[in-house]
């Protein structure tokens, strides 16, 4: 397994947010992390990235126990994060956003621009002058430039126009086709499930169901994913 999360418990101050989450991602696999709002999806991602370290449980990535590592060390070990909310560096250009933290590997500037040609057209523009969709492309491009072994996408298509959403999904399909390991949180199940190799559902900070997308029945959807 590339990523193995076992029974993690995470707190924000005195408040416990995760009560035992298990999930695993194999190399080249796309895992969908699902659940209603506030069930712990983003906290699970923050724990994996060591932004909010888990107090109990284990996270093993690529054979390395991440316990005790700092967030930059976890990222350096090969975890790339596209956080919720299109987080780019507003007062830097598109090019600077992409190259400043780049690490050598298959993904370089030319390859990112081939995935998102708009970024190449706007290379000299400040990130805060891009549209929401372009900023999301930039956030994904920035994460890819670190050549991650595992790319985590947290609500990457949320709030985007349908046409832009399609562009992002086709990029995700291409990444999956190239064998990139992915952990994806997204509410558009009609796009996500056909791509997913396995799904994990969180409910009140616990992983309550893990299985293949085909096994996700309507009852399970109503019980854990319905509004």
């Amino acid at each position: 397994m590339m990523l193995e999360v076992s029974q993690i418990e995470t707190y924000y101050g005195p408040s416990q947010a995760l009560f035992g989450v298990d999930l695993s991602v194999a190399a080249g696999e796309l895992v969908a992390l699902m659940g209603r709002n506030g069930m712990g999806k983003s906290t699970t991602i923050r724990s994996i990235c060591r932004l909010t370290p888990a107090k109990r449980g284990h996270i093993v990535f690529d054979g390395q126990d991440l316990t005790g590592l700092r967030s930059f060390q976890a990222a350096r070990s090969g975890i790339g994060l596209v956080p919720e909310g299109r987080r780019c560096f507003a007062s830097l250009t598109v090019y600077e956003n992409l190259v400043a933290t780049a690490r050598s590997g298959a993904w370089d500037y030319a390859k990112v621009v081939s995935l998102f040609p708009r970024l190449g057209e706007r290379a000299g523009q400040m990130a805060d002058t891009l549209s929401g969709g372009e900023q999301q492309m930039l956030a994904i491009g920035r994460a890819l430039m670190t050549n991650p072994k595992l790319l985590i996408l947290d609500e990457a298509t949320e709030g985007l126009a349908p046409v832009i959403r399609q562009e992002i999904w086709s990029a995700i399909r291409r990444l999956k086709g190239e064998g990139q390991s992915l952990l994806v949180v997204d509410k558009t199940l009609s796009e996500l499930l056909p791509l997913a190799d396995s799904c994990v559902i969180l409910e009140k900070g616990r992983s309550v169901w893990t299985g293949r997308p085909a096994a996700l029945t309507n009852d399970l959807r109503d019980q854990y994913l319905g509004v």
Partner: peptide, 17 residues
């Protein structure tokens, strides 16, 4: 660029390794 990133948001910079 990295120095500017550290000024703007060090957590985001750290998640880039």
């Amino acid at each position: 660029a990295a120095l500017t990133m550290a000024r703007l948001n060090e957590v985001r910079l750290a998640t880039s390794g």
